[in-house]
């Protein structure tokens, strides 16, 4: 009980104050940024609804044309997107689960537990982020070919299954967000480390896990540089499949854009699911009662 007498925790009992409501200026600013953020995606849809030739004309089209469903259909069948979407869901889903899970427990250890070589190991994690990715592709492929994983999904899942970015992110977040007193209290109760992770760390980490999940999913979904080497059109992810759309000496840009649109829409769905997880008041829930 002593834990909860720390002044910061006691004060957290009341609900969020009125001053936290947003005013019209806030909405105005957010709407402007939202418009700038969404414009290229909306324009992708406009481009996908036109013909390829129209996209070269000036001024470029700013409103929807009549060919959206025709182009979407062409892109869907030409790029064999049904299998690609399934593969991408498996790849991005697995990488997201692996990254979020392993990053959270490792971040927790680095933030709140004491062990030898901690600082050195953390520095090592950060140092691995500094390796430029473009070049690893050649040795990585030699390695994957040796394992005989070419064209198999594990070739793109396992190399990015954990992420230094995620570990570092979780460590910084939990350093701030997880009161050491909570862990102490759990220890006093005789909780094992696994129980602490489950009952204390995960609830507190939820907003950060949601954000890390979103970022990781997008990264894995849109990753192109490595999958294009490791996979072929026989077993592609969405990004690999989409490169097959531009065929002939005159690639049909509107179909390419339709493919890009089909490849992006599932992400929005994932965002809504994750976005709802970033809710306030986690601290209050975990501590107060």
């Amino acid at each position: 009980m002593a834990v909860f007498s720390s002044p910061r925790q006691v004060r957290s009992k009341s609900k969020a104050g009125k001053q936290m409501h947003a005013g019209p200026v806030t909405y105005a600013v957010l709407i402007v940024f939202t418009a700038v953020s969404l414009f290229p995606l909306i324009w992708t849809a406009i481009a996908a609804s036109r013909t390829s030739g129209r996209l070269s004309q000036t001024p470029p089209p700013l409103w929807f044309g009549a060919n959206l469903f025709k182009n979407l259909g062409t892109a869907w069948t030409d790029a064999n997107l049904s299998q690609a979407l399934l593969n991408s869901a498996v790849v991005a889903g697995s990488i997201t689960v692996g990254t979020v899970l392993f990053s959270t427990i490792a971040g927790f250890a680095f933030a709140k537990l004491r062990f030898r070589f901690k600082t050195v190991l953390l520095m090592l994690v950060i140092a691995t982020m500094m390796v430029p990715p473009q070049l690893s592709v050649v040795p990585m492929f030699l390695w994957i070919a040796k394992l005989d994983w070419t064209n198999h999904l594990q070739a793109v899942i396992l190399p990015t299954f954990v992420s230094a970015f995620g570990v570092f992110f979780m460590r910084q977040y939990l350093t701030q967000a997880l009161p050491t007193e909570l862990i102490e209290a759990a220890r006093v109760d005789g909780a094992s480390s696994m129980r602490i992770v489950w009952h204390v760390v995960f609830p507190v980490a939820r907003p950060a896990m949601a954000v890390l999940g979103m970022l990781t999913f997008v990264f894995a979904w849109n990753d192109f540089f490595w999958p294009i080497i490791a996979l072929t059109q026989e077993n592609p992810t969405v990004q690999v499949a989409l490169t097959s759309l531009a065929h002939g000496y005159v690639p049909d840009e509107s179909v390419v854009m339709a493919g890009a649109l089909l490849g992006t829409l599932p992400l929005l769905l994932v965002f809504v699911v994750f976005g709802k997880q970033i809710v306030g008041g986690i601290m209050q829930g975990a501590v107060k009662g």
């Binding site: 909405y27 957010l30 481009a47 990004q239 840009e253 854009m257 992006t264 965002f271």
Partner: peptide, 27 residues
């Protein structure tokens, strides 16, 4: 802040990161 449509704004913020490179390049 407490916002109406907060999920929408949050999702919108991440759309540029999710937009395909081919589309962004053309735009």
């Amino acid at each position: 802040y407490r916002l109406r449509g907060s999920t929408f704004f949050r999702v919108a913020m991440l759309v540029p990161y999710a937009t395909s490179v081919a589309a962004a390049a053309l735009v």
